[in-house]
């Protein structure tokens, strides 16, 4: 979107809104035309169309369609409030971001096989390194918290988390 040429930017007042609108438009069309008819079962006999499991999903899909068109129009004609736009952030280095993604995947992929403690320590240390945290005692936290919290969950709260791979 940053590469869009100047004339375009002048015509479209809020590019992001237009893009959001288009994405939602596509989503709503996929929903209304493909997902709802194919993935929602409907009983053969219905006393009332409102009883159908497809009724509300259909309405919602078409409403999303309508509002996404409105959003596109709004994006084209209404200028956005550029001064305090909370949508924009100053991006940091990619390395931080990628390490964070790895940490997230550590959680989802290894939670059951490695257990809560090991994944907790691994992901926390990764996130500390990503920042990077340079206070050495913080790394003690990265070990103490997963161990402590897991034991708290399992033994005090009686909530069984997967413990150890062995």
């Amino acid at each position: 979107m940053s590469s869009s040429d100047l004339s375009n930017v002048k015509r479209i007042k809020d590019t992001l809104d237009v893009i959001t609108g288009i994405v939602l438009l596509v989503v709503s069309l996929v929903l209304a035309l493909y997902l709802v008819p194919n993935y929602i079962g409907e009983p053969s006999i219905l006393q009332n169309p409102m009883m159908s499991p497809r009724w509300l999903p259909n309405i919602v899909s078409w409403l999303i369609l309508a509002f996404s068109i409105l959003l596109i129009i709004q994006g084209i004609i209404v200028p956005s409030d550029t001064e305090n736009d909370e949508r924009k952030i100053v991006k940091g280095p990619y390395r931080r971001f990628v390490i964070m993604l790895i940490a997230l995947f550590v959680y989802v992929l290894f939670f059951e096989s490695l257990g809560a403690i090991l994944t907790g320590i691994l992901a926390t240390v990764l996130l500390f390194l990503a920042h990077p945290v340079r206070v050495w005692w913080a790394y003690g936290f990265a070990i103490a918290f997963p161990v402590g919290v897991t034991l708290l969950f399992v033994n005090v709260m009686n909530v069984p988390l997967p413990l150890m791979p062995f």
């Binding site: 992901a123 500390f128 997963p146």
Partner: peptide
């Protein structure tokens, strides 16, 4: 930088 990794851990444990 220290808080968020620990928050994430709590979130994961809690969600599970």
């Amino acid at each position: 930088s220290i808080l968020f990794p620990i928050v994430l851990m709590f979130c994961v444990y809690g969600a599970y």
